[in-house]
Structures are given as C-alpha cells and as structure tokens.
Design a protein around this nucleic acid. Structure first.
Lengths: 156, 156
DNA sequence: TCGACAATGCAACCGTGTTGCATTGGGTCT
DNA sequence: AGACCCAATGCAACACGGTTGCATTGTCGA
C-alpha cells in the first residue's frame, strides 16, 4: 500500500505534506477539472451541487490557503478584484505559451505565442516575475454583440 | 475668458463634458500629481491632509467613476484586489516603455525597454489590453538585504 | 436671476475575505 | 485496535471595499 508519490489528488496532498481531508480532496479535484480559474463563490457553487453539501465558507478559504501554501494551487486577482484559484499542475501545462482572457465571459484561451523574453534591468535590480496579461473580448462574446451598451454587462 | 480646450484640470473636465466641481478638480489634480496609481483609500488620505477636508467616501467613488467615464482617469485592480486609479494623461506619458515594480517597497521604475508587440489572436477575438507586469526587488531594497526572510513579509 | 438637473452627503446595505474559539477528525504511536 | 495530539472544520462575528437610495446642494445654461 505504498503509492509514494502518485499524481492523484490524494497523493499530491501527501507529497505536499497536507492532511488528506474530504474537503481538500474535493476542492483540489474541482480545481483540476475546471478549465479556468475559479473564485471562492464559484467553488462554493460547484461543491454544493456536487451531491454533498458545500464546505463552510471559512473552511473553503482555509482549504484554498492550504493548497496554495502547499504549492498545489495558484491564487490570482481577476478584473473585479476577486481572487481566483487554479490547480498548480494545470498551470504547468500552460507555461510555454500565452493566454487570452475574455473580459466579458471570463474565459481563458491558449494562444500560439511564446512568452516575452525577460527585459533588461538597471544594475542591482533583481527580477522575480514577468507576466503578460492579454485581454479583450472573445469571438463568442463579441458576437453576442453589444449594440451600444458599451458598459460592461458584468456578472458579480 | 474662453479657454476652449486647454490642458488644465478645469479645461479637461469641460472637454470631457463633466461639470467642473471642486471635488472633481481636486481628485483629478491629485491623480495627475501622483507618481503611481492611487487607491480610493490613498485618495481619501491625500485629499484630507490637503488642507480642505476630504470628500465623502461615496462621493469620491462617484467622482472617480465620472473621471473614468469621461476618459480622464484609468481604473485597474492591484494584487490585493483593490481598484487603483491613475490620470489618463499621466499614463500616456508612460506608454512607450515598460515599468518595473518593486515587490518590497512598492516603487515603480521606468525601464528602457519597449512594450511587447501585440500577439496574434484567433479569428473573431478582439484585443483590448496587453499589459506586461515586470516585478522583483529594486537595487535599494536588495541592499537592505533579506538575510534569509524568504517568506513574503506581506502587508494587508 | 432663476430653474433644471447633475453632483454631493448621509445612511444603509452587500460581497469578499479574515480572525477567534470550541469541536471534530486524521494520522501516528504504542 | 485504542488512545493521543494537533491540524482541520464549523460557527459567529468582524473588517474592508464598493454600491444603492434618497434628500439636499450647487453648476451651468436660459
């Protein structure tokens, strides 16, 4: 019974040094199946409809924190100022190319483009991260058309 | 007495079709003098210490909304999920080159580097924004040294 | 100068994210 | 298997950013 370091949610939790609790398993699973980063509210929805009832609000926040701390999930802010979480391995599969974010539907699309080369910095400066944010409106949302409602018909 | 379209805050408001109120003048002036995008809280601080007492919380939000709607200010989300506003013309002066953000002191530095070329998008996709986020530690903060405090001594 | 209508201030509200504390449950040790 | 320790959970309450409704004030055009 020794699956030392398999890639199942359970194994990943073990490897990350996290206790293998039902909540963490369900959240990690949900993140890995999602095609885009999920907000706390998204996850509450996904997890409740899932059959079991959802986790407690606070617990979900803490589960997410633990996954991020363990390197299994990534945390970022969306255009509305809300945190969105994604599975870390899902992100690895998306490291070699750029992404396009639709400001309307929130969807993320892969582009056939390479990340930009790291810029030259002044002496003494240390580079830690370079992120290219490409955003606009995807084809589907553009078709749905905005006759003249220039304003964001946002969700939230 | 006809300065039809000058570049003073007052003239800009006129041009944008906004009423020239004390609040808008002060907020626009503060944004134009700032060397970096300001949050709502930042502005409340700046405006209160300014001599007069600050605007009402809600009024400040609405003033900012009107400036954004009039194209005089820009609105973006920072890493903490908080909206930050900048003067639109101030931003124009910084369009031809990249910027580096120090994650330690929060300072922003201009780089001698050109923005990346806009990526090619799939058919039907409409590009709205491309932002390159370059961050790390600036020379001064790097010298102050972090003996081994690898963890983020984050704020908030 | 006067009046219409936008801009302001005030109070109350909503959603996201956090903290404290008692209880439950996972993992390990014997 | 049983017991123990401490992390993980749930609950309540809070902090903060941002929004909405409504009465009042002030801008600007006639």
């Amino acid at each position: 019974m020794e699956r030392s370091h398999d890639s199942s949610p359970g194994g990943q939790l073990r490897t990350a040094g996290l206790k293998r609790t039902p909540g963490r398993l369900r959240v990690l699973g949900a993140l890995q199946e999602a095609r885009q980063p999920l907000s706390h509210a998204d996850l509450e929805r996904v997890l409740t409809t899932d059959a079991h009832q959802g986790l407690d609000r606070v617990t979900l926040y803490r589960v997410l924190d633990s996954l991020v701390a363990g390197g299994l999930a990534l945390k970022a802010v969306d255009a509305h100022g809300v945190y969105r979480y994604s599975a870390a391995d899902a992100r690895q599969r998306h490291e070699g190319h750029l992404h396009f974010r639709c400001v309307d539907c929130g969807g993320v699309f892969c582009l056939d483009e390479l990340p930009p080369p790291p810029p030259k910095l002044p002496n003494g400066f240390r580079l830690e991260a370079v992120g290219l944010d490409v955003s606009g409106v995807c084809a589907k949302c553009d078709l749905k058309g905005h006759p003249k409602s220039d304003e964001d018909s946002s969700d939230r």
